[in-house]
Amino acid sequence: MPRAFRPRRLPEVGVPGRGAGMMKPTARWRERLASVVRLFGRNRMGLVGLAMLGLAIGVAVLAPWIAPYDPETTGRVTIDDIYARPSAAHLLGTDDGGKDVLSALVYGARVSLVVGFAASLISMLIGGSVGLIAGFYGGRVGNLMMRLTDIFLVIPDLPLMIVIVAMVGPSLWNIIIVIGILGWTGTARIVRSQALSLKERQFVLRARAIGAGNFHILRRHIFPLVLPLIVTNTVLVISLSILEESTLSFLGLGDPTTLSWGGMLNFAFTRGAISTGAWWALVAPGLGIVWVVLGCTLLGNALEEAFNPRLQSHHLQGEERMIARPAQPGASDA
């Protein structure tokens, strides 16, 4: 998962650092939100991502009105209907069952998005609480939790998912739960390190000194500052979950009652779309996956930059523009 590393601080040169004073914990919520919105608004890639995701959600919600055919009803299928080329009747052609690819694509958005959002919600809840507890309370319990997280981090996800889904049976809910309960480790790690550093900060120590309880500090001081991190991370986990769902479905472990994009690809791949040259049945669902995943990734990256503005430049930049004085006739050989 793309995780940005940030330069820690600006060299002291008398310029108020971008980002240096921006995320002061004492800053008011409204100001912080305004600055985040402003920075996000400047990020063209993030806006594109938001638009891509918005379009996908729109299509998923309005599927019955957008899709030209109802995927549930099976009309009469003749041999000519199988892998029919794109035409006016079928804008994206037909699949191995003679069904309209465009309609399947539109309905497939529902499956991908539902799995993506639901699974990452589970990951967020588990990862967020594990990270917060391990980071804030620390001690033996926190340590143990992190050890466990480390173990889960090392165990390869997909093979484990395959094994579990193969054994419990591939229903939509099973897939969501499996992806959700295996995808929380990254979130937990990031949230923990943030909570760890927050708990030593002045304002928390001050709150503790005036007798604030653990829960109060957690709720009022730590959680609001960890939340942006959790949100950003969740957006990235959504894209990961969608990729994982499509992979499982492609490997034949998708819910047989609903056709996801991965499932469409599974059918096309195993039922001769390549040898018959039916590229539309292979390209369209894949583009759907890339569209949604890329949208989430762009959005997540932009959010991360908006919450944690990075420096504009580093020490090896600006050399060629540094001398910007008017021409000095003969000054250099004075």
């Binding site: 793309p2 890639m45 894209s239 990729l243 499509s246 992979t247 492609f250 991965g262 690809l265 791949f269 390549i274 590229w279 292979l282 390209v283 894949g286 996956i289 890339v290 995943v293 890329l294 990734t297 762009l298 990256n301």
Partner: peptide, 17 residues
């Protein structure tokens, strides 16, 4: 970011074709 967003199996299919 685009390369990261590609499903591996789908990229494989495209390259195969």
């Amino acid at each position: 970011l685009t390369a990261w967003s590609l499903p591996t199996f789908w990229l494989g299919i495209l390259l195969l074709i």
